[in-house]
Design a binder for these strands. Structure first.
Lengths: 247, 247
DNA sequence: AACAGGGTTTCATAGAGTGAAACGGATTAG
DNA sequence: CTAATCCGTTTCACTCTATGAAACCCTGTT
């Protein structure tokens, strides 16, 4: 029962402070203290440290804290030439031009998914997708792909996670995942966001391991259920082609 | 003499570990220990903490450490709509199209400068500029702009900083800055990198405060000294227009 | 087998991080 | 004009936590 974590508490807290900036770009000291549940003086010290190393800055006018230039510096070193998010970009652009809808690339991170790459549709009404967004694994076409095609161990671990939404009937959800496994792709219609729909297909690397989900998303009046099933083969094929590019 | 820093040592060290990834995207534990000068066990604990919060990951194949998805997530929240690096992008693109060379935007950060935005020339031979790069304030056209037009306090503080290169004659450098102050822009010819040249102009916000340097850079055979002085008025004007967009 | 080079674990100890409380400086209320 | 808030900052005594030396465990090499 005793969690044996060999981590450094002060560092954990500092990183939690940083992660506050994943929701909203500007916070005051007291606000942050409230969010992470620590005393003002502790946060003050942590923020001073983060500021010293350039991870946060204070806005001169508002006196509030923001992310600093070190984050920018590090983010420049995130993608390397052999990184999927860069390697797959040309194929994503090709698919975008073919279907004229926004294309996203997701990976699973524990019990969530993260959009690691995106190219936007050129239409006036389009899905706008920001890279880096972190979304739940319980809703959306890509979520279902990332779970359906994952190792059985991963699937059950996620479904039994304490953070998993209780109102979601586990039985029927698992059934749905099996259907997706058989179909080879997943769709979602106004599931996570009203007015939006998406089709997603799995990307396996050459050793057959699930590495990402490729999704096409747009307004639900363009991406009708019928239309999505029409698109599906092109997406599955595109995802397959991407897979062959990966080790 | 006793530096009264109220920072948290463990956090400082963890951030230094993270900053290792500003040079090279993959490191082993022992390598990092060498870089930051701490014992393996300490680094091990810090890396475990960073990994737990998603700031680093281990590459499954090489077993080495990389930056994690939390950095991606945070970087998505760096630029807000009223952020200079976003607001000025259209004008930077316009200037790029006019001059057909790479355009960069720099801000000063203590005794260095950081490239916070860039748009690349479309020519086959071009200056490639990565956003987030951190460069010395002692060389390059934008460096000289950032120093020449800064508050006198800032200028002298930087020039007397212990980290300032000793071989650089302070007197003549200060003289050069004054010339730039009079001219309204700066040039550099094969100063920092052989084969490269640049022109830079200051951007002041509406309250007259220096906020950034705008630079045009390219191969030195295209950007000859004569050519740069030809370009200068367009760059100064563009920088001025940008300034009026800022609070 | 012996060795080397990475990563992991253990443990006693010092000293570093912690939070309560008090302080200061704006801004707003009365 | 004073009182009352609301932030951020600073101080300080106590304890718990981070530390690094050393030992250990791999895997690959000589």
């Amino acid at each position: 029962m005793e969690e044996e974590k060999k981590t450094v508490r002060a560092v954990e807290r500092a990183l939690d402070v940083l992660l506050c900036f994943a929701s909203g770009h500007e916070w005051g000291l007291t606000e942050i203290a409230g969010k992470v549940g620590l005393h003002k003086s502790t946060i003050h010290r942590l923020l001073a440290t983060l500021e010293d190393r350039g991870f946060v800055t204070r806005d001169p006018s508002t006196e509030k804290y923001r992310l600093g230039l070190s984050i920018l510096e590090l983010s420049a070193h995130l993608s390397r030439s052999d990184d999927p998010s860069v390697m797959l970009l040309p194929e994503m652009e090709r698919l975008r031009d073919q279907l004229n809808e926004t294309i996203s690339l997701y990976v699973r991170d524990r019990t969530e998914r993260v959009r690691i790459q995106a190219v936007q549709s050129m239409q006036a009404i389009r899905r706008v997708a920001t890279v880096g967004a972190r979304l739940p694994l319980s809703v959306g076409a890509s979520s279902k792909v990332l779970l359906a095609f994952a190792d059985p161990g991963v699937r059950s671990a996620v479904l039994t996670d304490p953070a998993w939404p209780a109102q979601l009937e586990r039985e029927t959800f698992a059934k749905q995942l099996d259907d997706i496994l058989a179909a080879g792709y997943a769709t979602s219609f106004e599931e996570r966001e009203p007015g939006a729909a998406a089709v997603a297909a799995p990307i396996f690397n050459r050793s057959g391991k699930l590495v990402a989900a490729l999704s096409v998303s747009g307004p639900s009046n363009r991406l009708t259920p019928d239309r999505m099933h029409e698109f599906a083969p092109a997406i599955v094929e595109s995802a397959h082609r991407m897979g062959t590019m990966l080790g």
